[in-house]
C-alpha cells in the first residue's frame, strides 16, 4: 500500500467483515420477502424478486468472506508515485474527516427550514473550506458568494423553492 494511503486504513474492513455483513443483509432480505403478502390467484408476487436477490447476496457474501475472487482485484487506479517524487502525507484524522460531508448534509436537512438556505449554505461552505485548509481570506468571501450564486441560479432561474428562513434577500 503506497504511503499516501496509510492514513486511510481505518475504513478498510477485512473481507470477512464485509462478507458477513452481506450475508446478514441477504438473510434479512429473504426474511422480509417471506413476510410479503401474496397476490390472490397468482403464485408469483412481490416476494419472488427480493427472495432471489437475498439468496444471491448470501452466496456472494459467503464467497467474499472466503476471499474467493480476491486475485481479480486490481490495485487502485491511482498512479503510483515516481521514485524521488515527493508524495504529500494525508491530513490528520483523514479517515474521520471524510464523514463530514454526509453529516453536513444531515445538518442541512434539519436546519434549512428554520434557518433558511443562505445561512445554512454559508455555514456548510465555511466548514468544508476551512477543513480543507483554506485561509479565512478565501473561506469568508466564498461562504458569502457561493450561497448567493446558487440561490440566484436555483431560485431565480429554475424556480426551486429553497426556504428563506431567517434571512431573505432584498431582491
Amino acid at each position: 500500500m503506497p504511503a499516501a494511503r496509510e492514513g486511510n486504513r481505518a475504513l478498510q474492513l477485512s473481507d470477512r467483515i464485509t462478507g458477513l455483513c452481506l450475508v446478514a443483509l441477504g438473510g434479512a432480505a429473504v426474511y422480509g420477502a417471506t413476510q410479503q403478502p401474496g397476490v390472490p390467484g397468482q403464485d408469483v408476487g412481490p416476494s419472488v424478486f427480493p427472495m432471489v436477490i437475498g439468496l444471491g447476496l448470501i452466496g456472494c457474501g459467503a464467497l467474499v468472506a472466503l476471499r474467493v475472487g480476491r486475485s481479480f482485484e486490481a490495485p487502485d487506479e491511482v498512479v503510483p508515485p515516481e521514485p524521488g517524487e515527493a508524495m504529500a502525507a494525508p491530513p490528520r484524522f483523514a479517515e474521520w474527516r471524510a464523514f463530514l460531508p454526509p453529516l453536513l448534509l444531515v445538518f442541512y436537512m434539519l436546519a434549512v427550514d428554520t434557518l433558511g438556505f443562505l445561512l445554512v449554505a454559508a455555514a456548510i461552505t465555511l466548514v468544508v473550506c476551512l477543513t480543507l485548509g483554506a485561509r479565512l481570506r478565501l473561506a469568508l468571501p466564498l461562504a458569502v458568494l457561493a450561497p448567493i450564486g446558487i440561490h440566484a441560479v436555483f431560485v431565480r432561474l429554475l424556480r426551486v423553492p429553497l426556504p428563506d428562513g431567517l434571512l431573505t434577500l432584498p431582491w
Binding site: 448534509l105 436537512m109 456548510i124 436555483f154
Partner: peptide, 28 residues
C-alpha cells in the same frame, strides 16, 4: 484550490437532490 470547489459541489448536491422533488428526504 480544492477548498473553493468542494464546498460548492456539496451545496449543489444538496440543492440538486432537493430540486428533484422539492423533498428534503432526498438530501438524506
Amino acid at each position: 484550490p480544492r477548498a473553493s470547489i468542494m464546498p460548492v459541489i456539496l451545496l449543489l448536491c444538496a440543492v440538486g437532490a432537493f430540486a428533484t422533488g422539492n423533498n428534503l428526504f432526498a438530501v438524506m
